[in-house]
């Protein structure tokens, strides 16, 4: 048995590299596919599984989602890039490692180093305060309070230098105010301390807000669209409702992800994946489940990747300076 094994191995080693490439596209997918996910397992992880599970159905294979958190999501991208570009490794391209980290000079790749599949979902962010906090009846009172108490208020965006931090800092810079961001590697701990009264305000996502409706209220949702803000509740004002322009429009002030593969992946394989992903996203039960969990499907086709992600990159490049500005104000 060992001899056969060795023989097979030897033959395969000789013809493998040639035959492998030729066969690859024809019988794709012939084995399990994996998708690298940049954060710790949680709700976003479950959403990735919803989509890949339906995609796997379409392709007739299994797609496992592997969580490789670390270095603000960059570790997962690097892990994926080290694997062969054969279409058996997908990337859940969340905006922070895809756009923000390259702009911060923390990566060797940029968003143009990947071949896009379909876009997946978006999570609109909002500013929340405690419902019973008399200091903050509405957005204007909130800004006035920050003006009167410069640098005294404490908030959290989860981690330092992430997308919510950038958005909140940019909003405050636009209003000419600043506050102290307390970093919490686990977002949930921050929401707990907002409830407990230690923090003055915090960023939030639709589902945490729904679950804490008894204690939280929104001051603004970072979107221009009324129906996106409705993922919180009907009373949540949009940026437009407040007449606010923070230089971030469309997807730019929210969290979003776009499924990607390695740039060198063969075209036929990318086409197969795209067909499967489109069909998966169009399944009613997939749409329904994503929406119910506060992850809104974006439904952008691969062709629109550059046109959408490019300008977001420019907006983010301009907005991320607000974080530096905030640090300078606090150091004064």
């Amino acid at each position: 048995m060992l001899k056969t094994l060795i023989k097979t191995a030897a033959v395969a080693a000789l013809i493998g590299p040639v035959a492998g490439a030729a066969f690859a596209a024809d019988d794709y997918p012939s084995r399990n596919i994996e998708m690298m996910f940049p954060w710790g397992p949680g709700s976003a992880f479950a959403m990735a599984q919803i989509i890949t599970n339906a995609m796997g159905d379409e392709l007739g294979t299994n797609i496992s989602v592997v969580s490789t958190p670390g270095a603000a999501g960059v570790k997962s991208f690097n892990t994926a890039l080290e694997k062969p570009a054969d279409g058996y490794t997908l990337i859940d391209g969340w905006v922070a490692p895809l756009v923000l980290q390259p702009l911060a000079g923390n990566t060797e790749f940029t968003h143009t180093d990947f071949t896009p599949l379909w876009s997946a979902t978006r999570v609109p962010f909002a500013v929340v305060v405690r419902k019973d906090d008399e200091r903050f009846p509405d957005y204007d009172a909130f800004i006035q309070y920050l003006k009167d108490n410069p640098g005294k208020a404490r908030y959290s965006s989860g981690s330092i230098g992430n997308i919510p931090h950038m958005v909140l800092a940019k909003m405050m810079q636009t209003e000419g105010v600043y506050a102290r961001n307390i970093p919490y590697p686990q977002d949930g701990d921050a929401f707990k301390d907002l409830r407990g009264g230690l923090l003055d305000f915090s960023f939030n996502d639709p589902i945490t807000f729904q679950s804490n409706k008894d204690a939280f209220k929104t001051l603004v949702a970072f979107t221009n669209e009324k129906d996106v803000a409705a993922a919180y509740d009907e009373n949540t004002p949009t940026l437009d409702d407040l007449g606010l322009d923070i230089g971030l429009t469309g997807l730019a002030p929210s969290g979003w992800n776009w499924f990607l593969v390695h740039k060198d992946t063969p075209e036929e394989i990318v086409a197969t994946l795209n067909t499967a992903m489109e069909a998966a996203l169009n399944r009613p039960e997939v749409q329904e489940r994503l929406k119910a969990a506060g992850f809104l499907p974006t439904m952008y086709p691969p062709e629109r990747y550059e046109e959408i992600v490019g300008p977001i990159g420019d907006q983010i490049a301009a907005a991320k300076d607000a974080i530096t500005w905030e640090a300078e104000q606090l150091a004064k």
């Binding site: 992880f45 945490t208 489940r289």
Partner: peptide
Amino acid sequence: ALAIPGDAATAVLLGALLL
């Protein structure tokens, strides 16, 4: 009670609940 999971395992359970 608060949708605040304490660790990765409960975070995935929370995701499952939402789904």
